[in-house]
């Protein structure tokens, strides 16, 4: 579904991604782990071109999205993204947050969008917040709404950029539950996370990114119990 070939990205003189290549198949749940500053978030943000790579190729369903002639807005309609800091639209109600893009982009009528938004809100247990503004919600509620906002576009893949890192500890569970639910429903997902337990439970493949390359990747049980590289051993000894 997504194919990445020798992806490189610099910030000024600092080389953040030093050539990443991987294939992500439909239905896979990839967890990306690694120390901070390793480039894992940058890699995720390159996948929908929120960061523009300096070189390399990214293919999404036979479309070369790193080609400047590709209409990236069209591609992004199929790639949901959830941010660490939620980024709910502060000037819109929860309902408008969810329905804005589908309606503006002509995918749904206002009524259809509202209907499906209510169904999605019910799924995450936040129906009564439909008319609230983001400022009045807790972090956990904001993140669940942000996930719903992405789902309202019926994406083919969901990208999560440290979705629980900005949450108070007691709210992490409610958000992870929603993501796990989504994983169980068969959604293709790429999750940058510090929640090792969650990565182990939900992921079909765990990718350890360090120093701008995929240092090691494997299915979760093997990766966590039998790390091959010294870097991963060190990393796991610190976080587990």
């Amino acid at each position: 579904m997504i194919s990445v070939k020798n992806l490189k990205k610099n910030f000024n003189d600092h080389e953040v991604l030093k050539g990443i290549s991987t294939e992500i198949d439909k239905g896979e749940k990839i967890a990306i782990i690694g120390p901070s500053g390793s480039g894992k978030s940058t890699f995720l943000r390159c996948l929908n071109l929120l960061e523009e790579p300096d070189s390399g190729e990214i293919w999404f369903e036979d479309q070369l999205i790193t080609d400047p002639r590709t209409d990236i807005n069209k591609v992004r309609e199929h790639m949901g993204m959830v941010f660490q800091s939620f980024n709910l639209f502060a000037n819109k109600t929860v309902m408008d947050n969810i329905t804005l893009a589908p309606v503006k982009l002509g995918l749904k009528t206002a009524d259809e969008a509202k209907q499906s938004a209510l169904e999605l809100l019910q799924r995450v247990g936040l129906t009564e917040k439909a008319d609230s503004y983001p400022a009045s919600l807790s972090g956990g509620q904001k993140q669940r709404i942000a996930i719903v906002r992405s789902l309202a576009m019926n994406p083919k893949v969901m990208l999560f950029d440290e979705p629980t890192s900005a949450l108070d500890p007691e709210m992490v569970g409610e958000v992870l539950a929603v993501i796990k639910d989504l994983a169980d429903s068969g959604m293709t997902m790429v999750i940058v996370t510090h929640e090792m337990g969650f990565a182990r439970e939900v992921a079909t493949r765990v990718m350890f990114i360090d120093e701008g390359i995929i240092m090691e990747e494997n299915e979760p049980v093997k990766l966590f119990t039998d790390p091959q590289t010294q870097r991963l051993k060190d990393f796991l000894s610190k976080v587990l």
């Binding site: 807005n73 591609v75 502060a90 893009a101 576009m153």
Partner: peptide, 27 residues
């Protein structure tokens, strides 16, 4: 206006102009 507001709009497939008009400028 927080940079994340523009990023969120763009990640949903809205154009820069649409996100400006609907999200950034009102704020």
């Amino acid at each position: 206006v927080d940079k994340g507001q523009m990023e969120a709009g763009r990640s949903l497939g809205l154009s820069k102009a649409q996100t400006m008009k609907e999200i950034v400028l009102p704020q």
